[in-house]
Every structure is written in structure tokens, then in C-alpha cells.
Simulated scan of single mutants.
Amino acid sequence: MIKKRYLMYISQNYSYAILRPLQAVIRAQGGEVYWFLDGNEVNAQFLKVDEQRLFSIDAINSWKPDAVFVPANLVPNFISGLKVAVFHGFAAGKLNNRGRLDHFEIRGCFDLYCTQGPNTTQPFEALAIKHKYFSVKETGWPMLDPLFTLAVDNPYIVPSDTRRTLLMCSTFSRKLSCAPHLFSLISHLAAKGNWRILVQFHPKMSSEIVNQYKGIISDNLTFVETDNVIPLLQAADVMLCDTSSILEIFLLLRKPVVTFRNRTNAAYLLNVETEEQVESTIEHALTYPPKLMTSIEAFCQQLHPYNDGKSSERVLAATNALIDNPDRERVRKPYNLIRMLKLRRKLGYWKLKCWR
């Protein structure tokens, strides 16, 4: 039996954690995995010693992957293999520069979308009917396979410290980020020392803000830079956030989130508009109010109802079903000339081969 080949195509450090559970399943089933790192925002030092890397488009096309897994919006059509979207986060209600929900923007790159739950599956199924060149399969999200299993060596859990743990996360967008507005408050809370505070920002956060928060590191506050946020989420009792989709992952642990100027008006969030409201709302969240927890549960069933740790298996099964059915009826993907020219320029690849 010929082993199937799978390429992990990534451009951000957080993509390692998204795709490694899938890599583990592929290896367990006898498949081969290589990684391709696109751009300078992904750090090769996060690759593990047993993870293999391809360094060029020519190398990818010589290896000829059967499928390419992409936790991003774009992937070149000039590399071989079925293109599979596995998403870099949840649909957090963010609008793109055209005023449309970015999570559901179709960019003409993928053969298969592996969706996370009913609230993403239904919109993508409607889009599949409209566009006709891609398939949709609800699988759950590979990144979350380890979420419900607590590692014994979690570095952010300190049994000797009995204080409750607050995790602050923030997106990088100046318009949406809570980090610039809440620095003074977080500095004050860290000085009080009532809670243990963990801080983790989107990797695109400005260095100025990052350095501000690093400047208040203490026994009460830890600033974390990591390619895997799951141990942080598991260690916290409550989250303080804005619109970052990481808050939705945290909710799947059935823990409350306090948001700063979130515009969704969602019943499963405790939203505040001013800095003065934050501390008391966190205290309220730590009581796990029943009405809030009921709303969180209902939301989780729509967002990601799978807690069996087998989303990666479902993604691989859906992918293999398409690989093993090469004669399936389908409409060809668009040529995507402008996007592909930009990717060719970025990657320095000008050969005319187009795998689509």
C-alpha cells in the first residue's frame, strides 16, 4: 500500500498547535508529513526534532503531497495536492475591509473546508451550493483534540499557589484590542496580588504594547509567548479579552469570559465598556453564575460540540475520502490571478505550473 503524503502549510507560529494533533493521527495511520513555513512570521525553531521540513515550492512539487492542510486564508494553486482549510480560529464576528464576515470569505483556494460546528457548517454549506467547487465536512477543529485532557506537566498550573488565575488575551488590531486601554488596570491588579495573572497576546501585537506588559512582570503576573495556548487556557479560571477568537476556545472549557468593548452583545459573555467595570465583573465571573453558564453551554453546542479528542481523525477521513475519489464531479476552482501573482512574488516562484 502506497503511503499518502500530507503537507502542513503554515505562516504563523500558532499553526503548529493547530496541525500537530492532525500530524499525530496521520503518522499513526502510516502517512508521511512534511512542513512548509511561509514567510518570516513563523519561527522554524518551533519545529520539533522529528518534524521534517520542505524549503521550496519546487521541493513540494517534487514530493507531490496528496493533500495540503492550511490554517490560513490563502494557499498557492501552484503546489500539488488537495487544498484543505482547517481554519486559524473561530468566527469571532470580525468584519474585513469590505464589511463582510471574514471567517466566511471565500477566496477561491480550497477543495475542502473542515468546519468546527453547526454555526460554521451551515454557512459554508450554503456557500458550497453557490460556488460549487469545494466540499464541506463538519469535523471539529484538530487544535482542540488535546483541550479536554489536562497534561500532568502543565507549566502554568502552580499547585502551591491557591489564588484564582486570570488569563488576559488580546487581539492585535488597534481598533479592537483591549491591551492599550487596560494596561494601567492590569498593572494595578498585579500590584494588589489577589489573583495570579497570565498575559498572552496575538503574535502580531505591536512590540510597544508587548514591552509595556513585559515591564510589569512579577510574582503575580507572567507574560507568555508560546506556540501553544492550550496549557494557558487550562490553567486559568477566568479570561479577560476583547474580540479575539481565543475567547471562544476558552468558553469550550465551560469557563467565563469578561470582554472589553465586545460588539456581539452575546449572552455567553460578560461585556464591559469601561475600565472601572472590569475588576468587579471579573469577581462576578469567578462565581460562575448559573444563567451565564447555561448560555455558555448552549453556545458551545453550536460552536464545537465535539469533546472526544477525535476531530483530527474526522479531518483526515474527510480528506482521504476526496483523495480516493479523483473522478468526483466538481467545478474547477477559479484561477485567482491577482492573489496567485502576489503569492508567486512573495515566494519567488515564477514557473508556470498550476496545480489548482
Rank of each mutant, 00 (worst) to 15 (best):
H202C: 07
I249R: 03
L303K: 00
Y306P: 03
K64Q: 15
V42E: 05
Q277N: 11
K175T: 08
E105C: 11
S56L: 12
E273W: 04
I2W: 05
P21W: 01
D227C: 13
V199R: 11
A85K: 15
S62R: 12
G89I: 01
D327N: 11
I129T: 14
F104N: 05
V331S: 07
P76R: 10
M8R: 01
K3D: 06
N320V: 12
D153W: 04
M340C: 05
Y213T: 09
P155A: 05
M143L: 11
R20D: 03
T149F: 10
G140C: 02
Y113V: 10
G89L: 10
Y306W: 12
F134K: 07
T139W: 08
A266V: 12
Q45S: 14
H103M: 10
A17G: 10
P76Y: 10
A128K: 09
L112C: 06
E279R: 06
N43I: 02
D153S: 08
T281G: 04
E275Y: 01
R328W: 04
I246N: 10
Y9P: 05
S295P: 00
L232C: 07
L147A: 00
I197D: 07
M143D: 08
G215F: 15
L337Y: 10
C178D: 03
F223S: 04
K353T: 15
L303F: 02
N325A: 11
A235V: 09
L37W: 06
Q302I: 00
L322C: 01
D145H: 03
L292F: 03
H88G: 15
L176G: 05
S218N: 03
F69Q: 01
A44H: 15
S207P: 11
R196F: 12
I18E: 03
N97P: 11
A85S: 14
R330W: 13
A285D: 01
Y6Q: 01
V238N: 10
E138C: 09
N77V: 07
I26K: 00
A128S: 13
F223H: 12
G39T: 12
K4P: 03
Y133H: 15
T243M: 13
I296L: 08
T319Q: 02
V33P: 04
A317Y: 00
D111S: 09
K342A: 15
S177C: 02
L19I: 00
L74C: 12
E297P: 00
Q277M: 14
R356E: 13
V68C: 14
S206Q: 14
K137D: 09
C109Y: 13
G348F: 14
K137Y: 12
F250M: 12
M340P: 00
G309L: 03
A24R: 03
Y9Q: 05
M205W: 05
R163S: 13
S280A: 13
R263W: 12
E225S: 14
V272P: 02
W63E: 09
A72Y: 14
N77Q: 15
Y6H: 13
Q116L: 08
Q23E: 03
K175Y: 13
N13K: 05
P146A: 04
A59E: 15
L74A: 14
F46K: 09
Y156R: 02
G193V: 06
A318T: 04
E248L: 15
E51V: 00
M168L: 14
F223K: 06
L347S: 08
Y133C: 07
L176H: 12
L316P: 05
R314M: 05
Q302S: 07
K204V: 06
L19T: 00
L189F: 09
H181G: 00
S218R: 08
